[in-house]
Amino acid sequence: MPNDAFQPATLGPIRLRNRIIKAATFEGRTPDALVTDALIDFHRKVAEGGAALTTVAYCAVAPEGRTDRHQIWMRPEAVPGLRRLADAVHEAGGAVSAQLGHAGPVANAASNRATALAPNRQFSPLSLRITRSATRADLRRIVTAHADAARIAVEAGFDAVELHFGHNYLISSFLSPALNKRTDEYGGTLANRARLARQTADAVRTAVGDRIAVLAKFNMDDGVRGGFRVDESLSVAQWLAQDGALDALELTVGSSLLNPMYLFRGEVPLHEFAAQFPPPQRWGIRLFGRRFLRSYPYHEAYLLDTALRFRAELALPLVLLGGIASRAAVDTAMANGFEYVAMARALLHEPGLVNRMRADAAAETRCTHCNRCMPTIYQGTRCVLTTPVSDSAATT
């Protein structure tokens, strides 16, 4: 029998009230790289709206691993705020997860005031700077940092962590043959390119045991010529499942570094993005942005066909995301054997959508997938159709 998305379910060692997850979307509400009241309110509303698990994004494991210096990085000073956030979500009936990762070549070196790391020295089109090739010592430090960050999440009362293995962030960039040109034990063969992901998952599981759930956001396809594609991804997913460190994989696609719209689909808010930058970046985005922000048509459950290949070959629980925007799409995911679904834009538009879906089998989002929420990360991520700027401003 298919799973019922609106009944309680088990995810590793934790029990959730249903099978619907708020996917990680950088909230833009941490101006001092620490939790704010605005961030707590953001996730409280998601929990009040019925989602089982809300994901705090993005929680970097090291200061140079942020895409912007205003993002949280996991350190002792962050614990009190994270604990307040966890308590607020729990009081609203939900559970909370921290997305842990290192941005690698996606990091904003200028904002972080630290050189970005990558598998090897390369030009970053995001920061317009040259990255530094991560040394073995860097990689050992970063693996340990993931484990330490997971311990901080436990200390703060979080229910889960999500390891960022997607979008050409550091670990994803090591998986990519287009980005990883190393000749040591972390480059070349698929087994070598997967080494960092497997070491990280194992270190985190060892650190947390069965106290919290451990998920990974994992690329099925970079959407980049010569990059990490489905056949290789299936093999790595099978290795991760065999290793036994993960409770679930959240399946994603795309490259924040080279092809971000491959994940989001729908309209490309080019002019809104350009407006967030000063000249000459603004002019460059307007002139050449279509080469980076390519257009892909939106349709409901647009990653389902690719994800079904993973469902057919893996026993590991899987989270389906990508255009989950109606009760019908949720039910389709359950009928096809997915244990969980993840929603992002639809919950930005309407945090209470899950409650409405539970009550109405015909319910669907009113989100238009205009993607104008994407440029708002610089002032507080929000749906521009429903939330005034003043309501999303970051406060302490």
Rank of each mutant, 00 (worst) to 15 (best):
residue 129 R to S: 00
residue 185 E to Q: 12
residue 124 S to P: 02
residue 254 G to N: 13
residue 298 Y to V: 00
residue 280 P to S: 02
residue 51 A to W: 04
residue 206 T to G: 03
residue 203 A to G: 01
residue 172 S to I: 11
residue 24 A to K: 07
residue 300 E to I: 00
residue 273 F to Y: 08
residue 87 D to N: 10
residue 218 F to T: 03
residue 188 G to R: 08
residue 140 R to N: 13
residue 46 V to L: 13
residue 224 V to H: 12
residue 210 D to R: 15
residue 259 N to G: 02
residue 268 V to G: 11
residue 182 R to A: 07
residue 139 L to D: 00
residue 56 V to K: 07
residue 101 G to V: 03
residue 108 N to S: 13
residue 40 I to D: 09
residue 360 D to I: 08
residue 205 R to G: 08
residue 292 F to C: 03
residue 150 A to R: 04
residue 56 V to T: 13
residue 148 D to T: 15
residue 161 V to M: 09
residue 215 L to G: 02
residue 387 T to F: 03
residue 285 I to N: 02
residue 19 R to L: 15
residue 168 N to A: 00
residue 217 K to H: 13
residue 384 V to H: 14
residue 144 T to Y: 04
residue 392 S to D: 12
residue 275 A to C: 00
residue 319 V to L: 10
residue 306 T to L: 15
residue 207 A to H: 05
residue 253 V to H: 13
residue 11 L to H: 01
residue 391 D to G: 06
residue 116 A to Q: 07
residue 76 P to W: 02
residue 44 R to M: 00
residue 325 A to S: 15
residue 111 S to T: 05
residue 74 M to R: 08
residue 285 I to H: 02
residue 327 R to W: 06
residue 315 A to D: 15
residue 115 T to S: 10
residue 3 N to T: 13
residue 309 R to S: 15
residue 90 H to V: 09
residue 144 T to I: 10
residue 215 L to N: 01
residue 151 R to A: 15
residue 301 A to C: 11
residue 316 L to G: 11
residue 324 I to L: 10
residue 307 A to V: 06
residue 81 G to Y: 10
residue 290 R to F: 02
residue 51 A to F: 05
residue 15 R to D: 11
residue 76 P to V: 06
residue 330 V to N: 05
residue 27 E to V: 12
residue 375 P to R: 01
residue 76 P to D: 12
residue 329 A to T: 13
residue 348 L to K: 05
residue 258 L to T: 02
residue 196 L to K: 05
residue 350 E to N: 15
residue 189 T to K: 09
residue 121 R to M: 14
residue 385 L to M: 14
residue 258 L to F: 02
residue 94 G to D: 11
residue 298 Y to W: 06
residue 296 Y to A: 03
residue 52 A to G: 09
residue 325 A to R: 07
residue 320 L to V: 05
residue 377 I to T: 09
residue 198 R to P: 11
residue 322 G to W: 00
residue 206 T to E: 11
residue 283 W to K: 12
residue 177 P to R: 06
residue 285 I to M: 04
residue 252 T to S: 14
residue 352 G to W: 09
residue 253 V to L: 06
residue 189 T to E: 13
residue 122 Q to A: 12
residue 14 I to D: 05
residue 375 P to Y: 01
residue 250 E to Q: 12
residue 237 A to C: 13
residue 253 V to G: 11
residue 140 R to F: 15
residue 175 L to G: 04
residue 251 L to W: 01
residue 216 A to P: 14
residue 119 P to S: 04
residue 247 D to E: 14
residue 289 G to Y: 06
